[in-house]
Design a protein around this nucleic acid. Structure first.
Lengths: 212, 212
DNA sequence: TAGATTGTTAATCGATTAACAATC
DNA sequence: TAGATTGTTAATCGATTAACAATC
């Protein structure tokens, strides 16, 4: 079931659809139209239909989309139905917060091990996970077939940690540090850096001031 | 100095340029070409030149860009040279992490007050800030001329908190909760939701598997 | 049947990239 | 002067939106 040439912007909208659909399901809404979705998510209905049509025909003409059916399909497309263990590097404040978020992750995705480069952090217990030293990373990644590593260390350490993760064999990295990583092209890196969002927000706020 | 019709994608790249330029400056690199920047940030040099050209002529033909000069200009464009106090709502694990990150924010941007909807959190001290009750929000926002509110509460509370922030008078919101907010069109909302990034990462990892 | 809504094609819009004259 | 690099125009590429036949 290879899905060729799916644009990145489409893939990044799927989790947004999924999240709202899950919300609808919890309210026992059984059907939704692209119009409804668009209104609620500030997106063009045609765009939503086109996005979904990349992966199959999930709707019924004249009716809309069956909510549980669409949820199931998007989960499959994103591969959230498979177990996907994650390692987290960085047991600072952010790492701690992510560990405690653990239960909120999609069921099959969760942090299975926690590491830190600082020796004084090693051995601490955070949300039932013991902080491990970096030299155990490769062993754990191999043993548990870990595919994703999350980087939650300061920017200056991020590249070094990324190198370790790549060497250990992960396929993807989510980087919370404000730095662009250099990795082999086979490794996928996504960024979760809020400082970028905060700074661009500052731009628009002063724009608004000029107009008012 | 109104800057009309600047595309959102351009604005969101500016903080990325700024961050790398700051890195160069700390290493005493005085000049950089769009080629250098592009190589390091995985961007097309022409795109970088075009982005910067939206705001003025910052480079010298045959030479490149003066690093400190360009930093200063981007900081002005983004309005990071002005004081911009921020309120943070949510004193949970994530809120705590953000408070401790406080010092890493751009100098003029920092969290000046911390709030929580839960009465049992009120009065706690986190990184020299006392957690305040929501009914004091409007007073603080007005007094300190706060422009930005950060939402770090669970998804179910986010819309309610957003309503409070809008009512209190903030101009922009950074939402960490995995939910799309409904706000008046004059209010700018940016999202910092890592679950979206994590789920789309899962998609690409299984794609890679199919190819290998 | 009439109204609603999909999937999809065609039209529009915007962003990226290539190319190059100007010039340091 | 020769080499390098900008700012900018033109060409390409891709994403969004409008429109509509098919059909529930």
């Amino acid at each position: 079931m290879k899905t060729p040439n799916i644009s990145e912007v489409v893939v990044k909208r799927l989790p947004i659809y999924l999240r709202f659909l899950a919300d609808l399901e919890s309210k026992n809404v059984l059907t939704v139209s692209s119009q409804d979705l668009g209104l609620r998510l500030n997106l063009n209905p045609a765009q939503i239909r086109k996005d979904l049509a990349c992966f199959g025909e999930f709707g019924k003409k004249g009716i809309g989309y069956d909510v549980p059916f669409l949820i199931q399909n998007i989960r499959h497309i994103l591969n959230l139905h498979r177990r996907m263990p994650i390692v987290l590097i960085g047991a600072g404040n952010l790492g701690r917060a992510l560990c405690n978020y653990n239960m909120y992750f999609q069921e099959q995705m969760n942090i299975c091990a926690l590491f830190d480069v600082m020796p004084d952090k090693v051995g601490q217990n955070i949300n039932q996970l013991e902080v491990m030293p970096m030299d155990m990373l490769k062993e754990i990644v191999t043993r548990d077939n870990v595919q994703i590593g999350i980087i939650a260390v300061p920017a200056g350490e991020a590249q070094n940690v990324a190198n370790h993760l790549v060497d250990a064999g992960v396929k993807g990295i989510l980087n919370f540090a404000p730095s662009i990583l250099r990795v082999p092209s086979a490794i996928r890196v996504h960024y979760a850096d809020f400082t970028t969002e905060l700074q661009s927000l500052a731009f628009y706020i002063s724009e608004a001031e000029k107009e008012g």
